[in-house]
Simulated scan of single mutants.
Amino acid sequence: MQVRAERLEDIEAVRRINIAAFGRSGEADLVDRLRPITPTLSLVAVASDQIVGHIFFSPVAIDNTALFIFGLAPVAVLPNYQRQGIGTLLIQQGLTECDRLGCKAVVVLGHPEYYSRFGFIPAKRKGLRCEYTVPDEAFMVLELESGVLDSCEGIVRYRSEFNALE
């Protein structure tokens, strides 16, 4: 299994993976809308010369702060390859790359039991709230630089491209 940066020739495979994983085109459309934005991070998992997984990070903003923070969304693995550790590998390598790029923290909206394995904690514990109405325990944050959010609180705002996601 190899994880690498998405390439131009991967775009259609990434789209197929997101549609297959989510059973709809919403996340694939979101990635297509976000891809031209800078900075973003898009990684693929490759097994036997086939792209089987994808993860995407895009910038988010916290009111009244200029910290470089990414939102993780989406992460997708082809159904036949799920439950084999590919999503875990994508998240681990994605977080490592986010840190290398100078990102200070990553937020995610997802299953607390799953994302806590990577060190994510409820964002509310750091004084952060999601702009969307979501359960507190499902909106999580991981500091890539310890303590960077200690004096930071406010609403986390996603790119407007997320507003079209249902």
Score class of each variant (00 low, 15 high):
E131C: 14
G154C: 08
E113W: 00
K124H: 12
L109P: 08
S116K: 13
P135H: 01
G127W: 09
M140I: 01
V148K: 11
V106S: 05
S160E: 15
V156M: 08
C130M: 00
G110F: 10
K124E: 13
R125N: 11
S116T: 11
S151H: 14
L128S: 07
G119L: 04
M140Y: 08
G127S: 04
L128N: 05
G154S: 08
T133Y: 06
R157V: 07
A138S: 14
P135N: 03
G110Q: 06
E161T: 08
Y114I: 01
G147T: 05
E145M: 13
V108G: 03
V148W: 03
R117Y: 00
K126A: 07
V106L: 10
A123R: 09
S116A: 14
G127R: 08
V134F: 11
L149P: 04
V156L: 08
L128I: 06
L144E: 09
P122Q: 03
M140W: 06
S146Q: 12
Y114E: 04
S116C: 05
F118C: 03
Y158M: 01
V107E: 09
L128P: 07
L149D: 12
V134P: 04
V141M: 10
L109I: 10
V107G: 04
E143H: 09
P112F: 02
I155H: 01
D136C: 02
Y132E: 08
R129W: 10
L109E: 07
T133R: 11
S146W: 00
F120R: 03
I155W: 05
V148T: 15
K124A: 15
D136M: 08
P122M: 05
D136L: 05
R157T: 14
F139C: 06
I155Y: 15
I121D: 02
K126G: 04
A138V: 00
E113L: 12
F120A: 01
L149V: 02
G110E: 06
T133I: 10
D150I: 00
C130K: 01
D136T: 07
V108A: 03
R125A: 09
Y114T: 02
H111F: 10
P135V: 05
I121E: 12
H111R: 06
E113H: 09
P122H: 05
F120T: 02
E113K: 07
G154H: 12
L142I: 12
F139N: 04
M140L: 14
G154N: 07
L144Y: 14
S116E: 11
P135M: 05
R157F: 08
R117L: 14
K124S: 11
G119M: 08
K126C: 11
D136F: 00
E137T: 10
R159I: 09
P135A: 14
F120M: 03
S151K: 11
I121C: 04
S146F: 04
R129I: 10
L142S: 05
G110Y: 14
E161P: 01
F120W: 08
C130E: 00
V106P: 06
Y115A: 02
P135W: 06
G154V: 00
E153M: 06
A138E: 14
V107R: 03
R159P: 00
A138C: 12
